[in-house]
Nucleic acid binder design. Structure first.
Length: 501
RNA sequence: GGGCGCAUAGCUCAGUGGUAGAGCAUCUCCCUUUUAAGGAGAGGGUCCCUGGUUCGAGACCAGGUGCGCUCACCA
C-alpha cells in the first residue's frame, strides 16, 4: 500500500524540503559529488587499539541523533554497520549550523579521530562533518537497546512485509539482517563459480529470448519481436542450449541464469528465479551425485565454515555422502505399491488413500510422481538423492541401463524440498524424437506444461552428442536453506508483487 | 483458484456503535561524553476503496483492492 498522502503535503516531508532550502540559503551543498572515505565502521571497532587518536574519514547514513545543546552524538551507518560519532559546536564551528538542519536518514561524510566514550563505546570525535545527501523522506527508524543478558533488542522494527518487499531499499537501510542474507547469497554464488572454475568448467551465456522453449515442464511468458515479427518465449530453462554446446565440443559448461515460469507465486516460487545448470561430457548421473555433494559441501564450508545447519529447528548436515533413496523402493515401503509392475487402477486406489483424485487421462508416470510427492517427499529430512524416475515425466533423460520404464535421473531433497534435478542426458536422437512426440500428444490432450518439439535440438543431437551428465540447482532455494529463510521472497531482492495501487 | 486473517499518524500498535489514541519519529525551548539520552511544551489522520444498515460507523453488513497464512497447482 503506497501512501498517497506521503507527498510534499506531509508535514515531515515538507519540513525536510524547508531544511533543504535553508541549507542552500546558508551556502551548504545538500548533494555532494564525492567523499574520500578511508575507513569503515567495522574496521574501526575491530582495530581500536591501533586506531585510537588516529584520524579517519568515514561516510554513511545518520541512523540516530542525540542532541545535547552544543554537543551531539549520532550513529552513522556505513556498508558494514554502525559507529557513533561525537561532535561539539566549539570544534566544528559553522558546520554545527548545518548539522542542526540534518536529520535521521541524511548521508554525511565525517573526518575525526577515534576514541572511546566514558561508557566505553568506540566512536569518532568529529573535526569536520559534511552533508553528502539530504534525505527528503522520513525513514521508518527502529530503536535498539540491550537487555540484561546483553542481547540486542529492536523496538518497533519496520515489519510491514508489503512495504519491505516493495521498498526493499528502505528494508535494507533499517533491517541489517536483510543485508546479511544478500551478502551470503552473493558469497554462495561466488563460491559456486570458483568451484566450477577449479573443475575446468566454461561459463557461457545462452538466449533468454527463445523461439521454442524447452528443458522443463512449465508455462512460459510470451513476448514479441517487432522487426522480426515473431513471438519469442522467455526461457523456462537453459538445458537445450547448453547441451547444444556439449555437441559443439565444450565438455564442461555451466550457466547461472534467470529463468521465467508463468505460474503461481508462493513460498518457494517466484516467476523469475535463478538457476544453475551444468553439463559434463562423458559422465553419468552417478558421477553427478558425487559432484553435487562436493559442490554443496564446498559452499557450506567456505561460506559458513560448517556443514551442519539448523533449518526450521532441525539440524541438517550437508556433508557427503548424501542418502540415496530409490523412488521405486521408497514408494513400495510407504504404500506397498510396486510401481515397476502396476496398473493405472492400482495407482488411482493408492492415491485415493491420500485424498488425491487426478483426471482420467493422466499417465502412470504422473500418478507415480504424485504418489511420491504425498507419500515420501514430506518425510525426507537429511540431504537425499531420490534416484530413478518414471520415463513419462522425464523426456530429456536417458533410459535406465537396467531398469525397465525408468530413467537415470535424481533429484536432491532436503527437508521435503527439492533443490536439484539431474540426469544422465538422453543423447540418442531417435529416442529423443519419440519422447518429444509423446510430449506433443500430451500437449494436444490439454497439458499446457508439456514441451513443444524442438527440431533444431534434434538436429544438433543427430550430429552426435557424447554421453553427458547434467544438473540443475535452484539457487534461490539453496540460499533459502543455507540462510534459514522461510520464503523465497526473503532471498530475492525485488520479489514479484502485484501492481501497486 | 479455495479457505482463514490483516489494512487506523512517517513507523510499531491500541481503540467491541456516541468528541480519533499511545510509544517512537517530527517541531519549539533547555542541555558540551549521550546511547531506546533526559526535562518542558506543541503539531501531525482520506481510520485502504465503494456502497449499505443506523439518529449516529474506524467499529456492523456487502462488494472491491493490496498483503499475510494455508490448501490446491507448480515433474
Amino acid at each position: 500500500m503506497e501512501n498517497q498522502n506521503l507527498d510534499d503535503t506531509n508535514e515531515l516531508i515538507k519540513r525536510r524540503f524547508e531544511e533543504l532550502a535553508e541549507l542552500n540559503n546558508k551556502g551548504f551543498d545538500a548533494f555532494a559529488y564525492s567523499y574520500d572515505v578511508d575507513n569503515y565502521s567495522e574496521n574501526i571497532k575491530n582495530n581500536f587499539e591501533e586506531l585510537e587518536q588516529k584520524n579517519v574519514k568515514i561516510a554513511g547514513r545518520i541512523m540516530a541523533i542525540r542532541r545535547m545543546g552544543k554537543a551531539s552524538f549520532t550513529h552513522i551507518q556505513d556498508r558494514d554497520g554502525r559507529i557513533q560519532i561525537y561532535l561539539r559546536k566549539d570544534e566544528v564551528g559553522e558546520e554545527y549550523d548545518a548539522f542542526k538542519l540534518m536529520d535521521i536518514g541524511d548521508i554525511v561524510g565525517v573526518t575525526g579521530f577515534v576514541f572511546k566514550t566514558r561508557t566505553g563505546e568506540t566512536s569518532v570525535h568529529v573535526k569536520s562533518i559534511t552533508l553528502l545527501s539530504k534525505s527528503l523522506r522520513p525513514i521508518p527508524i527502529a530503536k535498539e537497546s540491550v537487555d540484561e543478558e546483553g542481547n540486542k533488542v529492536i523496538h518497533d522494527q519496520f515489519a510491514d512485509k508489503e512495504l519491505r518487499y516493495r521498498q526493499r531499499y528502505v528494508d535494507l537501510i533499517v533491517n541489517p539482517e536483510v543485508k546479511e542474507v544478500f551478502k551470503k547469497r552473493s558469497a554462495i554464488v561466488t563460491t559456486i563459480r570458483s568451484f566450477l572454475d577449479t573443475n575446468e568448467f566454461v561459463e557461457v551465456e545462452t538466449p533468454v529470448l527463445q523461439p521454442v522453449y524447452g528443458g522443463a515442464a512449465a508455462r512460459p511468458f510470451v513476448t514479441h519481436h517487432n522487426t522480426l515479427d515473431m513471438d519469442l518465449y522467455l526461457r523456462i530453462a537453459d538445458e537445450l542450449y547448453l547441451k547444444r554446446l556439449i555437441v559443439g565440443g565444450f565438455d564442461r559448461v555451466y550457466e547461472i541464469s534467470k529463468d521465467f515460469r508463468n505460474e503461481g507465486i508462493d513460498k518457494t516460487h517466484n516467476p523469475e528465479f535463478t538457476m544453475l545448470e551444468l553439463y559434463v561430457a562423458y559422465k553419468d548421473y552417478d558421477w553427478m551425485m558425487k559432484f553435487t555433494e562436493q559442490m554443496v559441501e564446498d559452499v557450506a564450508t567456505k561460506v559458513f565454515g560448517k556443514t551442519e545447519f539448523e533449518i526450521d529447528g532441525t539440524m541438517i548436515d550437508f556433508k557427503g555422502p548424501w542418502i540415496r533413496l530409490s523412488m521405486v523402493d521408497s514408494i513400495k515401503d510407504a504404500t506397498g505399491v510396486d510401481i515397476t509392475n502396476t496398473t493405472s487402477e492400482e495407482l488411482k486406489v493408492a492415491l485415493k488413500k491420500y485424498n488425491i483424485e487426478l483426471a482420467d487421462d493422466v499417465n502412470n508416470g504422473k500418478m507415480i510422481d504424485e504418489l511420491f510427492g504425498v507419500a515420501v517427499e514430506p518425510n525426507i529430512v537429511q540431504p537425499t538423492f531420490v534416484v530413478d524416475y518414471p520415463i513419462e515425466i522425464s523426456p530429456l533423460a536417458k533410459k535406465h541401463r537396467t531398469k525397465e520404464g525408468l530413467v537415470e535421473r535424481f533429484e536432491g531433497y532436503v527437508l521435503g524440498r527439492e533443490i536439484c534435478n539431474a540426469f544422465s542426458e538422453l543423447n540418442d536422437p531417435v529416442d529423443q524424437k519419440e519422447r518429444f512426440m509423446s510430449q506433443v500428444e500430451l500437449k494436444e490432450a490439454g497439458d499446457d506444461e508439456a514441451s513443444p518439439i524442438d527440431d533444431d535440438y534434434i538436429r544438433a543431437m543427430e550430429f552426435g552428442m557424447p554421453p553427458t551428465a547434467g544438473l540443475g540447482i535452484g539457487i534461490d532455494r539453496l540460499v533459502m536453506l543455507l540462510t534459514n529463510q522461510p520464503t523465497i521472497r526473503d532471498v530475492i531482492l525485488f520479489p514479484q508483487m502485484r501492481k501497486e495501487k
